[in-house]
């Protein structure tokens, strides 16, 4: 997994609440058995005017000129600014895969859906929760070329005027993301504890260990 330490990048504002994972990556693209290549289909139904199908060449598809990511000033955006309950609905990890593949490394919102939030950390994508008022202020102060600087170690977001905003994150998740660690390898370091748990549980719940 890619590590995340610091990032200073263009911000794209997606001014909608309850953006669901069906909107982030529609179901027809979930038929892929690969982990990469979802970026061109990110927000497919909002981003293009035609109906997307897997393995389509997106370079010739008609773009929706009103959709934020199609505006030239957000072409290089790596930070997505959005509203409440981002990533609700389906557990599909294809949603963070698509965001990451497109080029996003961080998402700022007043709240995220639990499964989506968790999935982000497995993919080097940093979801940042800020108060709704603060998110609102960021939306309001956006201007051409607007960038934010994110420092995961310090747990801060810094605006162009130098305003520094603190964010909370679990120590465990932060450590893993900072170092780009392989979760499975870390858990397997505790293999003895897992076996000890199984031995003890088999006594309490023998029907699970037939």
């Amino acid at each position: 997994m890619k590590a995340f330490t610091q990032l200073k990048a263009i911000v794209a504002p997606l001014d909608r609440a309850n953006v669901d994972t069906d909107a982030i990556i529609p179901k027809q693209f979930l038929k892929s058995i690969r982990r990469a290549g979802f970026g061109p289909y990110l927000f497919d139904e909002w981003r293009y005017l035609d109906r997307g199908e897997p393995e389509m060449d997106c370079s010739t598809r008609p773009l929706n000129p009103d959709f934020v990511l199609n505006k030239p000033q957000y072409k290089d955006a790596q930070i997505l600014l959005t509203r409440e309950n981002f990533g609700c609905g389906s557990s599909r990890e294809h949603a963070p895969w698509a965001l990451e593949d497109y080029g996003f490394r961080a998402i700022i919102a007043p709240s995220f859906a639990d499964i989506f939030y968790n999935n982000c950390f497995k993919n080097g994508l940093l979801p940042i929760v800020l108060d709704a008022d603060v998110v609102d202020s960021l939306f309001n102060e956006m201007e051409p070329g607007y960038q934010l600087a994110i420092d995961l170690e310090a747990q801060t977001v810094t605006t162009p005027t130098g305003r520094t905003i603190h964010f909370d994150i679990d120590e465990n998740r932060k450590f893993r993301l900072l170092n780009g660690l392989d979760d499975i390898a870390l858990t397997l370091q505790q293999a003895d504890k897992i076996r000890a748990y199984e031995a003890e549980r088999a006594k309490r719940a023998p029907w699970l260990f037939q």
Binding site: R35, S91, R92, E93, P96, I115, N118, N119, K122, N123, N172, D183, I184, T187, L188, Q190, A191, I194, E198
Partner: peptide, 19 residues
């Protein structure tokens, strides 16, 4: 019972555990 993403599917397969 709870839903998980694919990275956790792999994790649960490999370790029978989740963080």
């Amino acid at each position: 019972a709870f839903g998980i993403g694919t990275s956790e599917v792999e994790h649960a397969l490999a370790t029978q555990c989740l963080m």
